[in-house]
């Protein structure tokens, strides 16, 4: 766990953030802040998850919203069927979406580059049509979720959700960071740069790609599982929202895809800006701004903010 000083600092920061989050729930009562931060944390998990496949491995997934929605609907269905408590729902969503990710991983055997990206987009729409016709979870009409009135340790339910989400976010960042620096991460980078060359050099490309897609799917499922309890009403249009997919692509692209910190920076920056713009201007405009920022960053700064900073530091050293 602690291989060098960087590791120690990282875990201290992580623990401090978690403690600070708990401290906040004991002092601030205004529910708006928790709602806003929850949205940012959810986007962070999605961005970090997308980056494991998109940034580290080089396979673009347009179907993020599908993983997110299947995670949410797994929680809805199990909550309705067995009434399981939250940790089990999250684990179940992770398992279902992890399996889905594994399936997508096998797709990479036949589909490279743009064909893979288009296939994930197609998968999202096919799954949306299935949910649209599945009456048990409300089909196209949507479904209401009941949340408990009282919870232990916290003064309101949203605070509990906030802490759950904070812990999940920190966990996914830790996994992503570990992956980035490990042997697996180097293998994934080799696949991203040249898959054929990696295969020839003895990198087990299929196994690494399967690990990468399964992890991505499981993380996105985890991000989706608490969502029904957060909004208390889920329908296919909101769960399969294209905005979820755009955000989870835009945030890593803006932050920088090659390094684990990139999607975190992108998500905090873009997510924070979105909350401010939604309150001060309008929610449609904030959607537009994300789209424009995505296009501008891809065309002008393809390495993202991390790339810009690295370039600037190199110039200063000279």
């Amino acid at each position: 766990m602690f291989r060098n000083r960087g590791d120690v600092v990282f875990w201290i920061v992580l623990g401090a953030v978690l403690l600070a989050g708990f401290g906040v729930t004991q002092t601030i009562a205004n529910e708006y802040y928790y709602t806003a931060i929850y949205a940012i944390l959810q986007a962070t998990i999605m961005a970090v998850a997308w980056n494991i496949l998109g940034g580290f491995t080089g396979y673009v997934n347009f179907g993020s919203a599908a993983f997110f929605a299947i995670g949410a609907y797994t929680a809805v269905a199990l909550d309705k069927w067995l009434g399981l408590p939250m940790p089990f729902l999250i684990a179940a969503s992770a398992a279902v979406c992890g399996l889905m990710g594994l399936g997508v991983g096998y797709l990479t055997l036949r589909l490279k580059g743009v064909y893979f990206a288009i296939a994930t987009l197609a998968m999202a729409i096919v799954l949306e049509t299935l949910i649209n016709n599945w009456d048990y979870v409300g089909a196209a009409k949507g479904v209401y979720i009941l949340t408990p009135e009282k919870v232990p340790f916290f003064s309101s339910y949203i605070q509990l959700l906030f802490m759950v989400m904070l812990a999940l976010t920190l966990g996914s960042i830790a996994i992503s960071r570990y992956l980035n620096a490990s042997r697996i991460g180097r293998g994934l980078a080799a696949i991203r740069d040249d898959e054929v060359a990696a295969e020839c050099a003895g990198v087990p490309t299929l196994r690494l790609k399967l690990i990468s897609t399964t992890l991505m799917g499981a993380m996105m499922g985890v991000a989706g599982a608490p969502y029904p309890f957060f909004v208390t009403f889920v329908d296919p249009i909101s769960a399969f929202n294209l905005f979820v997919a755009v955000n989870s692509i835009a945030m890593p692209m803006i932050g920088g895809t090659a390094h684990w910190i990139g999607p975190v920076i992108g998500a905090l920056l873009v997510g924070g800006a979105q909350e401010v713009i939604t309150v001060t201007v309008s929610s449609e405009l904030n959607v537009l701004i994300v789209g424009i920022m995505l296009v501008l960053f891809i065309t002008l700064a393809p390495q993202g903010i991390v790339g810009l900073v690295q370039k600037w530091m190199k110039r200063r050293k000279r």
Binding site: V60, A117, V246, V287, L288, I298, T299
Partner: peptide, 19 residues
């Protein structure tokens, strides 16, 4: 670097048009 960045570029254009 047309394939993947280009794809994300057009994805953004599509999104901007819609919004």
């Amino acid at each position: 670097q047309e394939s993947l960045s280009g794809l994300a570029f057009f994805f953004g254009v599509m999104f901007i048009i819609e919004v």
